[in-house]
């Protein structure tokens, strides 16, 4: 059992929790994730390790409520325990001094981008971070990002904060200005990553993306996480989650992510009718 030490709501439907998991905190490297189960009949879901404190023995998770498990986690409180926490999983990010690294985070993707940005920054890279969201209220972790970036560019689709536009437009203008870029790392919703890759392909910039296929075990045993990269089938959990963005079949990933839309909706509706989890109040409400 893994105790929740801190929990807060950092945006509409977005939560951050600090969890006591000393062995995972010690072993974690940027780019890796965990798989958790909230309770005995719960499902296994992957979440990126958004931060860690090896001395305190804690890891930080940031999640967006989209379905049964993430909503249920939203109702959990400090002192509650997760049934299972398995990790760190996945290949760590390849970090070295590349020169200038541009990190592009969209929506909840800013959370998984954070430890990579930190790692790239610590390795002596000049880090330019572009974070984007639909609207101001949905921007997360901008202050955390500021601390580990040499330049931070913020964009909102509706112009309510920062640059008015998409992250791809911000990236394009960097390229147009002639900024020397050695590597791009893009994490966010699939359409965003696909759009970023379109821009970087044209500019011939190496681009790493972190994929989020549906997973079960996370150890290479089930193949649920199949993705196609460069025409070859790979297992997202053990061969990734990071891949060469120029080679990824995003259409396939989108289709596979929709595989359980029907049952997920049934489960969510049923979940909303029943009282599950501890019913404490928390900032932001249900």
């Amino acid at each position: 059992m893994f105790e929740i030490l801190e929990k807060e709501r950092i945006g509409p439907g977005v939560n951050r929790a600090v969890i006591f998991a000393p062995e995972i905190a010690r072993a974690h490297k940027p780019g890796q994730f965990i798989i958790l189960r909230t309770h005995a009949d719960g499902e296994r879901i992957p979440l990126t390790i958004a931060d860690k404190d090896a001395d305190k023995g804690t890891i930080t998770l940031v999640w967006q409520e989209v379905g049964v498990t993430t909503y249920y986690m939203g109702t959990m409180c400090v002192g509650d325990k997760l049934q299972d926490l398995c990790g760190p999983l996945g290949k760590p990010t390849h970090i070295e001094k590349f020169g200038t690294v541009v990190g592009i985070g969209g929506g909840i993707g800013v959370a998984p981008l954070f430890p990579i940005t930190k790692g790239m920054h610590d390795a002596g890279n000049h880090v330019i971070t572009i974070v984007g969201a639909r609207t101001e209220g949905l921007l997360i972790m901008t202050e955390d990002m500021r601390k580990v970036s040499d330049e931070l560019l913020i964009a909102t689709d509706d112009g309510s904060f920062g640059i008015h536009g998409f992250v791809t437009q911000v990236l394009q203008s960097l390229i147009d200005k002639g900024t020397k870029i050695d590597l791009c790392v893009a994490i966010g919703p699939v359409p965003m990553m696909r759009a970023v890759v379109k821009v970087t392909k044209a500019a011939n910039l190496p681009t790493v993306v972190s994929l989020n296929p549906i997973m079960v075990d996370g150890t290479g045993m089930c193949g649920a996480c199949r993705v196609e990269v460069g025409g070859k089938t790979m297992f997202g959990c053990v061969d990734g989650p990071e891949f060469d963005g120029h080679e990824v079949d995003f259409e396939l990933l989108m289709k596979r992510l929709a595989m359980y839309k029907g049952p997920e909706l049934i489960a969510l509706n049923k979940f909303r009718e029943t009282d599950r989890g501890c019913q404490c109040t928390f900032p932001g409400g249900a």
Binding site: E43, C222, E228, T233, K255, F271
Partner: peptide, 28 residues
């Protein structure tokens, strides 16, 4: 890699280990 295509490991893991036959009482 089409939807609806499983490895036996995935199918059996969902059914046995994750008790998918009880869905939506169980979450998988």
């Amino acid at each position: 890699n089409l939807n609806g295509v499983y490895s036996a490991n995935e199918f059996l893991t969902r059914a046995n280990l994750m008790k998918a036959y009880l869905f939506p009482q169980s979450d998988t």
